[in-house]
Write a protein that binds this DNA or RNA. Structure first.
Lengths: 317, 317
DNA sequence: ACATCAGGATTAGTTTTTCTGATCCATTGG
DNA sequence: CCAATGGATCAGAAAAACTAATCCTGATGT
């Protein structure tokens, strides 16, 4: 393809002029003056060595050559326009995947501030764990761990938003009924789980109640939001994330029988995960910085709790 | 199509870069520096709001978006290149139609001077009367009359090269044998015709030998060249064009029994005919001016003959 | 470990292109 | 005859593209 193309802008001017049947229409469409269109067309005619328009006082008429060239250009430009628009449109879409619990308890309540801060992006949230539901992979993933992101642990970037601090929680009446004062008392309780695993209970039990309870026992709920609501309704003890359950803890709907026995989630915390390729694109950058700023309160709260406990744990990046 | 297109030169730069897998290859192809390509690509990426390349120290790699865009552009540019090249190629071709007699006796002997004067045009000569043998009509027609040009007498331009002057001619021996001294002597002769019509004999007979001979009698040859050669061989009397038969007349191969009885051809003369649309294009203009200049001698000769006869006929344009 | 190299990014300054805005010109319609 | 339409043209101004030099990063080679 050694420079066999005529000046492309001249082609564009000709295409517009031919389509409008005159230079004025083209100049309106292209937002330039008639003279500019006239010049472009002449340039193209000189380049090709063939007249494309017959000039008449009433306006221009296409020559045979012009009639042959027009549809080719219109078609070629349409193809280009279609594809570039599709890319732009795609680029303006910010596809985020976030599991239901985190969505309901953290992301969704804050999302409107992102939309107002970045109206240029249309955010598409998927709460399934991994719907590989599209041509194109997701731009970012919010969640507890790397495990959500399908088969690509290598080129993955991570930004932690806030640590996940765990302690058992239940309705005040339930704590009273079960007379919860020691971790070992939990063996008398109904343990509530979110679906995915039992790592949270296992980690806490490992730290504070070795052999005191079976992490695999108890009822399983589809996500942490429903498990927490079940605890509020007095169905048992949930392993509460101090950030995600702050509302219930603040309002007294849930109480923590062992407020000093707090452990970090083995999953590390809530973070944003993303493929390296897209990690520094403007839209992901915008989302990351919005999310990180939105989590500032949560990080502060977690820091306060850790400090109050004597801070034996170093801050994470 | 309201300006939905990205900067076209940026698209071209991207396409070349993507095809070459690097900016250096593209800069070679486009004959610009690497920086220019880099800038173009960045401009396009900014315009689309999406990265097309992943920059790495070893070079660039296409992103998913770039991979999607590349084939569309390559294809669109190829279509444009194909059509514009076809038009250019066509434009460099000068298609001339000229009947065989005029071709052999006037055009062909002079054609090489046109090719050397205008090597930028490839001349394609067709000696059929009207081969509508192509997508595109002919650029010019050389011949006696308007009649060759198919069904388009209205938007037709004409340039006369030289007038056609007619007088009977035959081999010297034939003139001697038949003792030709008066036009009425022709009734004893074999009249030789070129194929197309008998207007030439009819016109001459009408002017100088009313009722003296039957213009429809005699032998018919496919073109004026063969008819003339037949006359040279002593087969009869041909109605000779003083320009087209000058060689035989000068050499004495043919003689004119009635040198003072010259009439103008009813077909008017040899001219160039052309459609109005192409009449002033550079290539037709070049051909016209070359042909007109090449005919200068012939016009002078015709003028001399007319002057010698007393010039009762006005010069034609 | 250090120099070197390849490939791209960046930037200032220059060249080239393109655009404008005013002016002309030919035709057409009232 | 005059105004309006549609294009051509030209000088000056604005914008874009290009160059050339330099910087940067990771790979390579000794």
């Amino acid at each position: 393809m050694l420079s066999r193309l005529p000046p492309l802008n001249a082609l564009k001017a000709f295409e517009a002029a031919a389509r409008h049947g005159g230079f004025i229409g083209a100049s309106d469409e292209l937002h330039v003056t008639r003279g500019a269109v006239s010049r472009h067309v002449k340039l193209l005619e000189d380049h090709l060595g063939v007249a494309l328009f017959v000039r008449q006082p009433q306006g221009v008429r296409l020559t045979a050559a012009g009639r042959q060239l027009l549809p080719v250009l219109t078609n070629a430009f349409a193809q280009i326009a279609r594809e570039t628009e599709r890319l732009s449109h795609n680029a303006a879409e910010l596809r985020v995947i976030c599991p239901p619990g985190t969505s309901i308890r953290w992301l969704l309540p804050r999302l409107d501030t992102f939309q107002t801060a970045h109206p240029e992006y249309r955010l598409k949230l998927t709460t399934d764990f991994y719907t590989d539901s599209g041509f194109d992979p997701y731009d970012a993933d919010i969640g507890f761990s790397v495990s959500n992101w399908p088969n690509r642990a290598s080129d993955l970037e991570v930004l932690t938003l806030f640590p996940s601090l765990l302690t058992p929680a239940c309705a005040p009446s339930y704590a009273h009924d079960k007379a919860l004062t020691l971790p070992s008392d939990l063996s008398r309780c109904d343990v509530l789980h979110e679906s995915r695993a039992h790592e949270d209970w296992a980690a806490w039990a490992n730290a504070f109640a070795p052999n005191g309870l079976d992490p695999k026992s108890g009822q399983v709920f589809p996500n942490i939001d429903i498990a927490t609501k079940a605890a509020v309704m007095g169905l048992g003890v949930v392993m509460a994330d101090l950030v995600l359950c702050r509302e219930e803890l603040d309002s007294g709907a849930l109480v923590t029988p062992f407020p000093d026995l707090v452990c970090r989630s083995p999953l590390g915390g809530i973070c944003i995960l993303g493929g390296r390729e897209k990690w520094t694109t403007p839209k992901v950058e915008a989302f990351k910085s919005w999310a990180y700023n939105s989590a500032e309160q949560d990080r502060a709260a977690a820091r306060a709790i850790l400090d109050a406990l004597g801070a034996e744990s170093p801050p994470d990046r």
